[in-house]
């Protein structure tokens, strides 16, 4: 681990100022950052601890719920308002990581966790995300936990979050604050970038900008499901996961919001899948069509080919369950 300075500010503006440099990073739970620093995949010279900024509250407001950035995954999953109004989020959180990690990991940190691509973690191999321009060892290497949607010739790294998948289905937005004290709200759909030629740039965060909260509008559907497929029953990243938020009216699908984990370079949502379903009567043919639309641009490699049939099957099973 490279030596670093640590500040522990108690004011938001100070935190943003402290972290307004190329070589600085915020730290909250540290469940991912510390691992990466030990391997020197991440080598910040300055860390700003944001655990004293009072960002750990959950509040209801007129629009819905405001979740502070340092609310832990455990606390968020257990919150009764979340369990009642946004249960898909609670389930997604509990499907992720382990109890110990969830006790430390935070809401903002979870959104920004880095990929689990093994080549990203191995500084002896090529990785455009870690070392821009060095190449991508995964393209012709061992693939399994890699993306098939949103990939590029430069990167097939998967976004590993469960929580963020549920948040995409819930139309969440993030509240950001910069060193000047300027605050802005960005929908999750505009928060992440596709890898393209610059896979090292994963979000639209500006230097020194901090996630201060996540906003959840009132859920668009009363039927909410999170289903995760993985290699073992706990503590494994998703091979495929589906978050569904759905409302039925008169035997037809009135609102559909489907988001996917294990498939995309970012927590994945495809407006065309939702549009296809809305207004329709549930049927196997409809679900099959949804799967086809979801996978229309999938780019698979030898190790990830199974995700196309698996993704379709899980989508169908979730739609059956949620429309029944």
């Amino acid at each position: 681990m490279r030596p670093f300075d640590l500040t522990r500010p108690e004011e938001l503006s100070a935190a943003c100022r402290d972290t307004n440099g190329e070589n600085a990073a915020f730290i909250a739970g540290g469940t991912n950052l510390i691992d990466l620093m030990k391997l020197e995949v991440e080598t910040p010279g300055h860390l700003t601890d944001i655990s004293r900024l009072g960002l750990d509250g959950i509040e209801t407001d007129a629009q819905g719920l405001r979740i502070g950035a340092t609310v832990t995954n455990s606390d968020l999953a257990a919150d009764t308002r979340v369990r009642e109004g946004w249960p898909v989020l609670s389930r997604a959180l509990l499907a992720g990581a382990s109890g110990q990690l969830r006790n430390k990991a935070t809401t903002g940190g979870n959104l920004l966790q880095r990929t689990r691509c093994p080549y990203f973690y191995d500084t002896d191999t090529a990785c455009n995300k870690r070392a821009p321009g060095s190449g991508c060892a995964a393209l012709k290497g061992e693939q399994r936990n890699h993306a098939i949607l949103g990939t590029s010739d430069h990167c097939i790294a998967l976004h590993p979050s469960d929580m963020a998948v549920a948040m995409r289905a819930l139309d969440a937005s993030v509240e950001l604050c910069d060193a000047e004290g300027e605050s802005r709200r960005v929908g999750l759909e505009k928060f992440y970038r596709l890898p393209g030629k610059t896979p090292e740039r994963e979000t639209h965060l500006r230097p020194g900008e901090l996630i201060t909260a996540v906003h959840l509008p009132k859920a668009g559907g009363d039927r909410q499901v999170y289903r995760k497929v993985r290699d073992r029953a706990s503590y494994a990243f998703a091979l495929v996961s589906v978050a569904a938020v759905l409302r039925m009216k008169g035997g037809r699908i009135a609102h559909a919001a489907l988001a996917f984990g294990g498939l995309g370079t970012q927590p994945w949502r495809d407006p065309e899948v939702d549009a296809l379903l809305e207004g329709e009567t549930p049927s196997q043919a409809l679900f099959d069509k949804a799967g086809e639309v979801l996978m229309r641009d999938a780019v698979v490699h030898e190790g990830t080919a199974f995700k196309v049939p698996l993704g379709k099957r899980v989508l169908t099973a979730v739609l059956k369950e949620v429309t029944a």
């Binding site: 382990s98 689990r116 093994p118 061992e142 290699d231 029953a233 706990s234 503590y235």
Partner: peptide, 16 residues
């Protein structure tokens, strides 16, 4: 060896 840690080399956990 590609998956050389406990997160990626999957030993059965209690739930398994």
């Amino acid at each position: 060896a590609v998956n050389r840690d406990f997160a990626e080399y999957h030993l059965p956990v209690n739930a398994d």
